[in-house]
Write a protein that binds this DNA or RNA. Sequence first.
DNA 1: GCCAACGTTGGC
DNA 2: GCCAACGTTGGC
Length: 577
Amino acid sequence: MAEGGTEHTSKKEKKGEIAHKFVLPERQAKVNLLIKAMEQATGDVGDTLYCICRSSDCERFMIGCDHCEEWYHGDCIGVTQLDARSIKRYYCDACRARNPSLEIQYKNKKKEKRVSESSDQERFDKHHKEYRSKLREKMMAKSRTTRRCGECSACHRNEDCGRCDFCKDMRKFGGINKLRQKCRLRQCTNYGISTSDKGSVATDTGSERAVTDLSDFEDDFDEEEAYENVKVAPKKRERRTSSSEASPKKKKDKKKVKSKEKGKKTPEKPQKSRQKSSLSRRRTEVDDALETDDDMPRQCYGPACIEPARLGSKYCSDECGMKLAKSRIYEILPSRIQQWHSSPCVGEDNNKKLLEQLRQETIEARLKLRQLDLKIQELDALVERGKHLSVVAEQEGAEQDEDTELSIYCVTCGSEVSQKGALRHMEKCYLKFEAQTSFWSIYKTRIEGNSMFCDFYNPQQKMYCKRLKILCPEHTKEPKVNPDAVCGCPIPVNLFTEGDVLCRAPKRKCVKHFCWEKLRRAEIDMQRLRQWMKLDDLFEQERNIRMAMSNRMGVLGLMLHQTVDHDPTTPMKTTPN
DNA sequence: GCCAACGTTGGC
DNA sequence: GCCAACGTTGGC
């Protein structure tokens, strides 16, 4: 059939296709003989009407629907002999319209490639060409939304493949919707025929581009390589078929010239090669997606199972899948465990070192926390000591006289205040602004010992206040100061050292040490808070490391990964801890 | 109003 | 000239 180079296939051949839609040339003679014998035996003459044209003509190439078993002329429905070679199961338009689950099934792409390459003549089937051009004209006349011929398998495809670049870009497949193009497998094969075919008939859209590019790519592609590595989609090939009206011979010559030209150009244009690599990537993606179409029933992979696998699965049932997985674990895991124990693992060593480091840091942080707790106790003791002291009025008067005329600017509001009242003003000013901002959390603080947070619960918001307790202007009331209370702030000997002597001015009037106790507590609390946050951070890091370690040693980790010693002559050594 | 996907455009 | 990006549009 293919080697004969005839454009017309007899009904005899057509009948032969009932068993095999595609018959290898060497087997064709046998099939013809067989059909002839059958015809003679049954006296079948052929007055029946076929196809959508309802003619009895069966001297042209025909293809039968595998659902309704009606026969169609290739040129009437736009299927060439070449197409038929790659089709495993063909369903006519009427059947596909009635039952959308029916899809034309294609054969193994390798085989198809081999044959299609060997039969250039059929590629330029005249009828097919006419059919395509009619379709194209029809489509061009329609509006923007019509990019579908409605007759090719791509147009009949209802679902996105989810694997091509356009699908991956779609939001439903987790993309960011940049490309906004239709699934490659759903792009009409009759739309956007190569521009060489008919001037500038179609706009250069994504789909068309891709296909034209692919055709170019095919031309350049080493046939042997293509044979081994690339499975060609029948749709793409089909479009190239209709791209020229030249005779096969002319086409061949043209192709030669083209490939020669390309051979010359290649070294000069690095950009071209870049494009090609991207094309090859895209092509692989398309082919990957096409592989899903290969619905050849195959045997279940389950151990000792002879049932056919479910569609799109390797197994006939979940049980078989589990069975195989289990047997894999039994077979692989023991050796992996053995290997794990015998070979060193750098990741594991690094993790251990990190854990040790984290442990040290945790100890340090806890030590600091204890020191800070001690500081609070010291402060309490200091305050207690101050309570037993009596007010010394002279000190108060002397200080007041000294600085009456100096003034400074408030760091919070910027207004000018006298130095005497500066601390008091700034404290009040700070509290005023602080009260305007809220810090809330839905969680109550859980800290060993005294919490430094306010943790006032707001039942309306169902949240806890996260200001420092000592500084919270909203929920912590200023303690009432007794008129007889002494300031009690330790007076520093010099700038950095604190003396034993305490300020004995009345607490209410001491302008030098206003709120000293509160600020000191806040300072200590802030340091405690930092240490707690550090501990939290260390804990998180430790958790992550431990998780990584357990994953590495877990069943899944052992099954999936393996350490390979690429240089057995100098075996790997664990770095000493 | 949402969404698929067409058609245009600017950068390379 | 190619192509990623995105504004736009028609269908639902």
